[in-house]
Each structure stands twice: as C-alpha cells, then as structure tokens.
C-alpha cells in the first residue's frame, strides 16, 4: 500500500465516506422508502440526498478555503447545516 501514499487524515476521510455509504445501503434495504419531491422539484431518495450533500459539501469546503481561507473546520459546520437542510427540504 506504500505506493498509494496513505495518510491518516485521508484514510479517515475515506472511512467516513465508506461508512456513510454502507449505512445508507443498509437503511435502504431495511427500511425501503418511496422517493419524494422537494424544493428542487426532483424526485430524491435518501441516497440521492446523501450524494447532493457530499457533492455540495465539497464545494462548500473549497469556497470556504478560497474566500475565507482560515479556520477550515468551520466549513464543516456549514456543511452540517447544509446536510440538514438537504435532508429536510430536498
């Protein structure tokens, strides 16, 4: 695995994403759901909303880094608020 140049932070990053995916897969199997239509006027399932959350969070982090430039952890707080909003309204 040396060639992959692993670091603990990146490993943690992927572990978090992988566990999110596994959790949502298990949820989808255990508690099947019907898609719903939210403010984006598109049908979404929990998985779709997770994707929108993750993709949006990446852009939020980049925007924070580019515009604010310091205190990056606070970007994660914004991401959490964003995630809550996506799961509530999208």
């Amino acid at each position: 695995m040396d060639w992959m140049a692993w670091t603990w932070p990146t490993a943690l990053f992927f572990i978090v994403i992988a566990s999110l995916l596994i959790t949502f897969t298990v949820l989808a199997i255990k508690f099947p759901e019907t898609p719903r239509t939210g403010i984006l006027r598109i049908e979404t399932t929990r998985g779709d909303r997770l994707f929108i959350t993750l993709l949006g969070s990446a852009f939020i982090n980049l925007a924070w880094l580019g515009i604010v430039g310091t205190a990056q952890p606070f970007a994660l707080v914004v991401c959490l608020i964003y995630a809550a909003a996506v799961f509530r309204w999208v």
């Binding site: 040396d2 060639w3 140049a5 990146t10």
Partner: peptide, 15 residues
C-alpha cells in the same frame, strides 16, 4: 484515492 492522497502531500520523487 491515490490522487486524494497526493493532493495533501508534497513529494520530491523517490516515492
């Protein structure tokens, strides 16, 4: 994943 690992590190070769 390897690209993500590269993106937070610096290298001068030699792996």
């Amino acid at each position: 994943m390897t690209v993500v690992n590269y993106s937070v590190q610096d290298t001068f070769g030699n792996n």
